[in-house]
């Protein structure tokens, strides 16, 4: 019995389990069952809503909560202004939503709620999710680019000052690097979140299995692994912030390309 229950499957945390609507919830033949993944998206949305709601007191002298919310909006605003300029302001709603949605999803996924029998699900560790977000960002870049510059947008693939004979070589490279953007955007977040969670689960299996194997193994393997887990948990909190920031930053850089070409 002990062997079976103590086994930690590092991949189980990524498994999607339906909560409702496994059958019958369909749109045009596509299943839209409400899963644990959707549940944590809902929770993320609600948490973000409550967070921003606390910042809407609109006081002239802000309280702590309002200050915190204003810090985040100011942070996104500054980032867009630094990367795009004055035109960056109109992207604040999107980039703020993106940044906060990913950040809160990442952080909630790290909460040790398993202690209370709730299993947090980090939906940003699924490339279906990060892929959709990346595609949205990429679509905005394409739409803005073609809207503002028309077919002139293709000059993005020919950097300024390229000698004419080099154009046939440079243009395909630029094109490929441009087309890779949504994939790198999606994969970066997905891989970073998944790797951290797998690492934590593997280390936790070391702790559990080592302790189960006896006091000696527990002291030799379990304890160092546990100490390492604490450190890596701190690192994962950092990574959660950094990945959300990187996603938002790269999105704003790509939007800058679309706004100003090169």
């Amino acid at each position: 019995m002990a062997v079976e229950t103590a086994k930690v499957d590092p991949m189980k945390q990524f498994a999607i389990e339906p909560i409702a609507g496994t059958q019958g919830w369909e749109i045009a033949g596509f299943n839209i069952a409400f899963t644990n993944s959707a549940m944590w998206m809902l929770i993320t949305t609600v948490v973000l809503f409550v967070f921003v709601l606390g910042g809407m007191k609109r006081e002239l002298v802000p309280g702590r909560w309002q200050m915190m919310v204003e810090t985040f909006t100011g942070f996104i605003d500054n980032m867009l202004e630094a990367n795009i300029g004055k035109e960056g302001r109109k992207y604040v709603p999107y980039v703020f939503s993106l940044f906060m949605f990913i950040l809160i999803a990442n952080l909630i996924g790290l909460l040790p709620l398993g202690l209370f029998g709730i299993h947090p699900f980090t939906f940003t560790s699924h490339f279906t999710v990060t892929g959709v977000l990346a595609i949205i960002s990429f679509s905005i870049v394409l739409i803005v680019g073609f809207w503002k510059h028309g077919l002139h947008f293709f000059s993005l693939f020919v950097p300024h000052g390229t000698p004419l004979p080099m154009v046939p070589v440079i243009a395909p490279i630029e094109f490929i690097s441009f087309m890779v953007r949504p994939f790198s955007l999606a994969l970066r977040l997905f891989v970073a979140m998944m790797a951290g969670h797998v690492l934590l689960k593997v280390l936790s299996s070391f702790v559990i299995d080592g302790t189960n194997a006896g006091a000696g193994f527990g002291a030799l393997v379990g304890l160092p692994s546990f100490v390492l887990m604490i450190g890596i948990s701190a690192l994962e909190i950092l990574v959660a912030g950094i990945q959300a920031y990187v996603f938002a930053l790269l999105t704003s850089l790509y939007i800058n390309d679309a706004e100003h070409l090169h």
Partner: peptide, 28 residues
């Protein structure tokens, strides 16, 4: 699961964008 994932992400991220991003953030 991909259809469910995409659908619910669009629903909740859409809610986030339109309610929080478009409505609340400008007020802040």
């Amino acid at each position: 699961t991909w259809s469910s994932q995409v659908f619910w992400l669009l629903v909740f991220f859409g809610l986030t964008f339109f309610i929080i991003g478009k409505f609340m953030v400008p007020k802040v």
